[in-house]
Simulated scan of single mutants.
Amino acid sequence: MLRETFLLECLLALIIVQLLQTSSASHNIQCNSSACGKIPIIRYPFRLKENPQHCGESSYELVCENNTASLYLNSNKYHVQAIDYLNFTIRLAGSALKNDSCSFPQYSLSRYNFYNNYPYSTYNLTKSEDLPKLSWPITFMSCPYPVNSSMFLVTSHFDNRFYASNASYSSTRRYTYVKVGDLNVSDVRDMCSIDLIVMTSWPFKDVNNISLSEIHDSLIYGFELSWYAVKISDCKKKEFCEGLISSVISAYVSSFHFIASLSS
Rank of each mutant, 00 (worst) to 15 (best):
Ile41Phe: 13
Cys31Arg: 14
Val230Ala: 04
Asp182Thr: 13
Phe158Ala: 15
Gly56His: 10
Cys192Tyr: 02
Tyr85Trp: 10
Trp227Pro: 03
Leu71Cys: 04
Ala167Ser: 15
Cys36Gly: 05
Asn76Met: 03
Val154Met: 07
Asn51Arg: 07
Cys143Tyr: 09
Phe88Asn: 11
Ile29Val: 12
Arg174Val: 02
Phe240Lys: 03
Phe88Tyr: 15
Phe258Trp: 03
Gln106Ile: 00
Asp195Ile: 09
Tyr228Asp: 02
Tyr221Met: 13
Ser59Trp: 13
Val80Met: 03
Ser135Lys: 11
Ala251Thr: 00
Ser255Gln: 00
Tyr123Met: 14
Ser264Tyr: 06
Asp84Val: 01
Val198Pro: 06
Ser171Thr: 11
Ser70Gly: 12
Tyr221Gly: 13
Thr172Pro: 01
Ser201Glu: 14
Ile249Ser: 04
Tyr85Leu: 02
Ile39Pro: 06
Ile29Glu: 13
Leu196Asn: 09
Glu129Trp: 14
Asp159Gln: 08
Cys31Ser: 13
Ser58Pro: 07
Tyr112Gly: 00
Tyr115Val: 08
Asn28Met: 07
Gly94Tyr: 04
Arg161Tyr: 13
Gly243Leu: 02
Ala251Asp: 00
Thr172Cys: 07
Pro203Cys: 11
Gly243Val: 03
Leu134Ser: 07
Tyr60Asp: 03
Leu14Trp: 00
Ile259Tyr: 06
Leu244Cys: 00
Thr22Tyr: 01
Asp195Phe: 05
Asn166Arg: 15
His216Gln: 15
Cys102Lys: 10
Arg189Met: 09
Ser170Met: 02
Lys133Asp: 09
Pro52Ala: 12
Thr139Ser: 09
Gln21Glu: 09
Ser23Thr: 12
Ser33Gly: 04
Ser186Ala: 09
Ser142Asn: 04
Ile215Phe: 12
Phe140Gly: 03
Ser264Val: 01
Ser261Tyr: 03
Leu7Met: 04
Arg161Ala: 14
Asp195Met: 02
Asn148Met: 02
Lys127Tyr: 11
Phe46Asp: 03
Asn99Tyr: 11
Asp206Ser: 06
